[in-house]
């Protein structure tokens, strides 16, 4: 049974000023198995962020279903959404979204505190902090850290609840290439530890770390690419080829 099933997903937006509807997702259909590392690629406006928001329960689909294991996300009541998010999903954003009023340690504890699950939090933090290389930053505040460090903290916050699915929205978008590479390496490590990751990106370099790449264009899954036994470098070439051929050379 797949971990995540996206079943003929459709999303329309009504713009505020006119009655005209904007179709963001036409018909998206794919599945994610447990332990997979999937990258979703597409240009700006391709609908990839809308897709992520729907999976993240931040937005509701117009038609179709999203199933996490056997739970239908569209059946969840509004008041249960927040609890669902923090119990099953982890988030990593492009601009980190850390709270400036909390120390690094407290930022990472945040989902545990919200879930009222603070027992043994110190141990969880210690393991994660070492894994992420932020053990000596725990008592600093986010504004004292570099971008790469902030993103590590954000990953820590996403992983501390051991989520079934880690959702990443352009996680390296705000980082320089060195830091971006480090962060991607971290994702690969997590993936090797069995973490299921779904990453949205328009960078082929980021996508080249994934096990499978879905290409989205005009609101549908246009093409997908499996890693097989390709190295990161070969994967990058394959992705770039696919982009050139399939997406009309826009990349």
């Amino acid at each position: 049974m797949p971990l995540l099933t996206v079943d003929h997903l459709k999303k329309e937006y009504k713009s505020k000023r006119s009655s005209q509807k904007v179709l963001a997702l036409k018909d998206v259909d794919f599945q994610v198995e447990e332990g997979e590392f999937i990258a979703i690629m597409g240009e700006s406006g391709s609908g990839k962020s809308t897709l992520l928001n729907c999976i993240a329960t931040l937005d509701k689909p117009t038609a179709g279903h999203i199933l996490l294991k056997d739970a239908d996300l569209s059946q969840l009541k509004d008041k249960d959404l927040a609890a669902f998010r923090r119990d099953h999903l982890g988030f990593v954003f492009q601009n980190f979204n850390l709270l400036d009023t909390l120390t690094v340690q407290d930022n990472i504890y945040l989902p545990l505190v919200l879930a009222k699950n603070t027992k043994g939090k110190e141990k969880k933090l210690l393991t994660l902090a070492q894994q992420l290389g932020i053990a000596d930053l725990l008592h600093k505040y986010p504004y004292e850290l570099s971008g790469g460090q902030q993103q590590r903290v954000a990953i820590g916050r996403a992983l501390i609840t051991k989520p079934e699915l880690l959702l990443c929205d352009e996680p390296t978008g705000a980082l320089d290439s060195k830091n971006a590479e480090d962060i991607l390496k971290l994702f690969s490590d997590c993936h090797e530890n069995g973490q299921t990751i779904l990453m949205v990106t328009h960078s082929s370099l980021s996508a080249s770390h994934a096990g499978r790449v879905l290409f989205i264009k005009d609101g549908t899954v246009f093409h997908q690419l499996y890693r097989g036994d390709k190295s990161d470098q070969e994967m990058l070439v394959a992705i770039n080829d696919a982009m050139t051929n399939l997406l009309g050379g826009q990349a």
Binding site: K79, L81, R85, A115
Partner: peptide, 8 residues
């Protein structure tokens, strides 16, 4: 986004 409900 991190999972605080409207109620909280």
């Amino acid at each position: 986004k991190v999972g605080m409900s409207e109620h909280e």
